[in-house]
Design a protein around this nucleic acid. Sequence first.
RNA 1: GCCGGUGUGGUGGAACUGGCAGACGCGCCGGACUCAAAAUCCGGUUGGGGCAACCCAGUGAGAGUUCGAUUCUCUCCACCGGCACCA
Length: 835
Amino acid sequence: MALEERYDPRKVEPKWQKFWAEKNLYKTEYDDSRKKFYCLEMFPYPSGRIHMGHVRNYAIGDVIARYKRMRGFNVLHPMGWDAFGLPAENAAIKHGVHPSKWTYENISYMKGQLNKLGLSYDWDREVTTCSPEYYRWNQWFFVKMLEKGLAYRKSSYVNWCPSCQTVLANEQVIDSKCWRCDSIVVQKELFQWFLRITRYAEELLTSCDELAGWPEKVVLMQKNWIGKSFGVEADFRIEDSDENIKIFTTRADTLFGVSFVCLSPPHPLSARLVEDKDELDKITAQYGKADEKMGLFTGRYCINPVNGERVPIYIANFVLMEYGTGAIMSVPAHDQRDFDFAVKYDLPIKQVIMPEEKIVGAGLVPAQQKPQGVPLQAAYEDDGILMDSGKFSGFASTDARETIAKYLQDKGAGRKVVNYKLRDWGISRQRYWGTPIPVIYCDRCGIVPVPEKDLPVILPEDVRFTGKGGSPLLESPSFLDVTCAVCGGKARRETDTMDTFVDSSWYFIRYCFDGKDPGLDSKLKSKSPELGYWMPVDQYIGGVEHAVLHLLYSRFFTRVLRDLGIIGCSEPFTNLLTQGMVIKDGAKMSKSKGNVVDPDYLIERYGSDTSRLFSLFAAPPEKDLDWSDKGVEGAYRFLSRVWNIVSKNLEAMKRVVSDDLSTGDISGLTEEGRSLLRKTHQTVKKVTADIEKEYHFNTAISALMELVNEMTGFEPRDEIGYKVLRAAVEKTLLLLSPFTPHIAEELWEAIGNEPFIPDRGWPSWDEGLAMDEEIELVIQVNGKVRGKLMIPVGLTDDEIKKLALGDRKMVEFLGQGVIRKVIVVKGRLVNVVVG
RNA sequence: GCCGGUGUGGUGGAACUGGCAGACGCGCCGGACUCAAAAUCCGGUUGGGGCAACCCAGUGAGAGUUCGAUUCUCUCCACCGGCACCA
């Protein structure tokens, strides 16, 4: 086969893409006699076109998938579309295109882009979350969760994005702003569907420790998000009443310093205790606003259970209803927030903890001899020694927390409790383009789940997108009016749709089935061999922005499906790689910054092999990648050099085979030949190690560049010389193939091999051939390099020592003093300590 | 504020378990080819000193441990990320 003289990816790449697609070479079959490897990249939202972040993400995943395949694994490497979401609906409002049309057109275009990148997906498993075949399972899981009490409806204050006209989950509010559109989020009271993720809070937290293959940073973020804290629930009896205010505190040791109690505005007692409803409304309007602390005195008092003190009850805008009991005790001396509040409303500040240093410095000071007359300038929030705390004075904070908790418990006025920051996951969205929540409301029967036989509840097509007046589903009678599944009477359908994070919480499970499998229906409802085989995902790759959101929801969903008896594992992702952002000119690529690089342009100009190679070479995957147009040219230059070596030596190489080189007979080789052969084996070893060790592709590629540099300078003079060259070229192409599959395939074929490299297996190296014949010994005197010496490998420490001390240059240095010590590091250096 | 991370040439980044700092790429400088340029190829490239062999300094700053520290410990500085009335 002839080879073009110049490397032209525009001719090479389409040829191989066509070859792979026509033979469906990346199709994966379930085969439990083989070792499996499930390699998954986060699927994209079909926004219209892919961006460089996708190129990087998918290039990383493709290298891993191809590498594992060459290592003999049965690799599952699927792709799909996170296809529900607001942009489609906004496009409908703005341009009058139906969200479905807009979405499917985008998918079609983006699929073409992914294929142009030469990614090794099994498209038969493609998942599109907006198709009824997919979202019917969201609905089925929802109904199951309803049965198990894991889905429920309640009225609560929720995060409302005025621009998106919908609620947001806590995880979707970033800095008080909407994660999608950056609008300021407000609090609004609404009836909402929730998934009881808190039921799994403890398990999600403790099994964090099993996530050994995740970046520690992400595990830590999950732990912090779940936010477990130990504390005490204490009862403050309301004066002239039988009722108690239950407060939650982690600082039972400060109970004697309580000077007031605060209720959250939505707390049920707030409305009962406050007489002036206008004032209560005012403070309720300020609920959740971070800027200023505001309070309202109820005129009522309650009794501190530890000392019987009478303390005023306030309503305070900063007290959260959703955490703890919705009521707090306020200790201004030891909590800065309470301190600020006390100063503002002129409430007493009573110090009950003193810093430990005072006591250490002056011996044990009785609590009565407290420091006098120095008012606190700020709250003292650290632990210390209790003072003015009755019989607990003199206790250390840590001990006092235990002892006081026990005291309250014995009195029946409190108990030890555990609290989590994690809240239940609100999934209702007041938008059209999402999974309909499969529930109907009947005047007689109340909330009725849609029976399984009526699933899926399909999104109606006959809707209008005006952008006003809430969800278009509210205006669709064909959707809205139903008969009750229980009594047959008139009923109304739920018009809220599900958060799209529901879709992505289990898509990795759906991939485990061949898209055309007719038995799918029963397989998703009970334990199937496919799920047992493929799950969990061995390697998951995506952006760190989902550290809590998607990754936490997926961990939750996997457990729910486990408890439904569908899946055997609890953790969905064994190993997680969070890739860095793509940066250009010091900022994340974005339209507004005008620093975007268009993948289409890049592929057209340099080819996808070059695009992939650069994004893998410029930085290790977990770090941010600094885009450089010059760097891309460098990658292209490198591939051209590989091409040129092959095209220059094509005919001579085709006449030889390289097989017998590894048997050890290298006596006929020149010095250069031996060197190249050694470098070849060293490179196979190095590239393998770099991929295995945390997927450091950048150093793997640099090793390949070194090998190619040596090949460029090598001039074979005889048959055995060409054998060496051919061996070097073949190994290079095999090693290169996960990174740049098209050019590898083209050159592989050109030198006379059968195409489809992935089936050839990963190359091996010969430890003997990889070994250096001699090494450079570094000679140090007192830790400074003073000389270098070439020595043969395999010498003993004593021999090395003798050689080093006998070196001509050493003699001068050693004249200066007495040798105190000689340290020999095998194969590296000798350090002579002279004093 | 709390938690976590990072800091290495002009630049992106290398450096196994504490053992030659700066691999590889980019840029720059010099050379070859060319009427010339582009492309390509070859050589050089941490800073300072020296004709040179070499010498000195050097991984954000300062200390410490060690024969030896980019790597381990402590303090500080700068930047980045997460959380933030979570009681």
